[in-house]
């Protein structure tokens, strides 16, 4: 067994793992942060998306031991200090951008990254940037609505 020490959402965590354990399972089953989901396990669906040094990655395609000393952010890190919803979460709720919610934490972690690292995105650009995330329920229209809405809120907040 190997001890992995890392930072998630600004907090330090430590856990024991076999070298072959996936990062997504380490986060969910060892550290008990259940917001990150696992869908396809092949790197396609994006349900397991987290941020590593602020950049989105798929945690089913990474070994937990590779994240030794890493600085990660998961969906649990979005909410405010008193549990208020983040702008991304608010937009997803207001625009009905989820049904079963299985894909949602992955989409939220992408949205959190995209709205901060792009000029105002068109619908087409949003679709193109989200093609590594699948949603089996919504048909994507409302997700695109929510991302646009979250970006507007983010820009307004920055002013």
């Amino acid at each position: 067994m190997v001890t992995v020490n890392l930072t998630i959402n600004g907090k330090e965590y430590s856990g024991e793992t076999e070298p072959r354990m996936l990062l997504v399972h380490f986060i969910r089953d060892v550290l008990k942060l259940k917001g990150t989901h696992i869908g396809c396990d092949t790197g396609h669906c994006g349900a397991c998306t987290i941020q590593w040094d602020g950049k989105p990655v798929k945690s089913c395609q990474i070994l937990a031991v590779q994240a030794q000393g890493a600085n990660l952010k998961t969906v649990e890190g979005l909410e405010g200090p008193n549990g208020e919803l983040s702008i991304e979460q608010e937009s997803f709720r207001e625009k009905f951008a989820l049904q079963c919610g299985y894909c949602t934490s992955g989409f939220l972690m992408m949205t959190n990254y995209l709205i901060r690292n792009n000029e105002e995105m068109t619908r087409e650009e949003i679709r193109e940037k989200l093609h590594g995330n699948y949603c089996m329920c919504t048909g994507y229209q409302q997700i695109v609505d929510a991302v646009q809405d979250a970006q507007r809120k983010y820009f307004a907040q920055k002013k």
């Binding site: 790197g43 994006g46 998306t49 950049k55 990655v57 798929k58 395609q61 940037k129």
Partner: peptide, 9 residues
């Protein structure tokens, strides 16, 4: 190549 997440790793 792939998508944003794949390109980051």
């Amino acid at each position: 190549i792939g998508d944003i997440q794949i390109r980051n790793r």
